[in-house]
Write a protein that binds this DNA or RNA. Structure first.
Lengths: 206, 206
DNA sequence: TTCAGCAAACCATTCGGTCGGCTATTAGAG
DNA sequence: CTCTAATAGCCGACCGAATGGTTTGCTGAA
């Protein structure tokens, strides 16, 4: 296949990838110029694909959520037919992302760092709902889903402040949370509010 | 008590409080000028107390960690003599901070948004270690501490993307995690790495 | 009287975004 | 299939606004 000198789709991807790297490294405050240079394009060129900085950040957040979702799906063991397989994929994908150090600040911290950009908050709310629906089809009870997913997220952030050496803690958490998806009894006897529908209904969209 | 027109300690506090509010509201990228105006002082006046923006942000992060620690201690039930009382204080303080909406982006998200400033990362590492030592004195087994603390942190971030209506989820998580501190059996049978010391030794301080 | 606390004008730099121009690519006419 | 006109992709200079930080000078406190 001939290498085209101008390939807008490829350029867009290049920019998004560079943005992921740079933002992870220097925080969400980076200038579009820095991102552009990291991607090997001019600022003008970048702004041709993303009409404003906010639009770029929004697209970046969207892209990261998508990529993470893909990682989760890829981490689901196809041979695994037991209840909780989806949740196990989530756990594996999360911890592997930290271990591989795809980025020092990976998806959780990054999205937190970017949440003030218009539109991102709404985006993440929808994403959260998608995960709810996803896990609702997993066959597990709500309690286990919530505890394990939240603990995974919490471990992800905790993994950021690493001296670089608590691999052991992360490894332990990974195995522990995976094992917890097979638990035969509830972790505690607490009844949920009677009027609580889960996953949260999306009827409150105006 | 007479109100002094010039009170450096009070001014410093005012600035820190204003910074907390403003950063929570508009993200970590706010200008020192904005913070200064929110605090009712001039930029020059602010820079008299904090020699640079980074120093201000660092002091801010330090202050937030301190405040949160104080909230945790205040949330420990003095009549509670059972094992896990410290952890229960942590859970209560975290969820109450979300509920009271002290800030839309409270301590976890905020620190994540600010982690790229020089010194903050180191600061949070030390803070994490302090919590480890704190909880190690709690009498609970490592497994419960880790799961419950991480789940609490995870729930804190999840609480940010609220449509404003999953109070029920937060309330449920709060009660659930509190109940889990009383669990009589392990959540899962996973052995920890043999060569793992916890809390992590602080000998790696150079 | 002296100095810390603070204000306000000031400065160099950087930022997000626009604009005009150049060129690779493509659609369409012949 | 070829030539051409139109367009999309991209660059780099440019602009006004905003930013972090400095300086100068005033004033209340000790």
């Amino acid at each position: 296949m001939a290498v085209r000198e101008r390939d807008p789709a490829r350029t867009r991807r290049t920019v998004l990838d560079a943005a992921t790297r740079v933002v992870a490294e220097k925080g969400a405050g980076v200038s579009i110029d820095t991102i552009a240079r990291a991607a090997g394009v001019s600022k003008g060129g970048l702004l041709h694909h993303f009409r404003s900085r906010d639009e770029l950040i929004l697209a970046l957040a969207e892209d990261m959520l998508e990529q993470f979702a893909a990682m989760v799906h890829a981490a689901v063991d196809p041979a695994d037919r037991a209840e909780g397989r989806l949740l196990r994929g989530y756990v594996r994908a999360s911890f592997d992302a930290i271990r591989d150090e795809t980025s020092p600040a990976e998806h959780v911290a990054m999205t937190a760092a970017v949440v003030n950009v218009p539109g991102v908050s709404e985006l993440m709310r929808r994403d959260k709902q998608r995960w709810e629906e996803f896990f609702a089809a997993d066959g597990l009870d709500l309690q286990r889903i919530l505890v394990i997913q939240r603990a995974t997220d919490g471990a992800s952030i905790a993994g950021l402040y690493e001296g670089g050496h608590q691999h052991q803690e992360l490894a332990y958490m990974r195995e522990l949370l995976l094992a917890m998806t097979y638990a035969s009894t509830p972790f505690a006897d607490v009844q949920q509010p009677a009027d609580w529908s889960w996953p949260s209904v999306s009827t409150d969209v105006e």
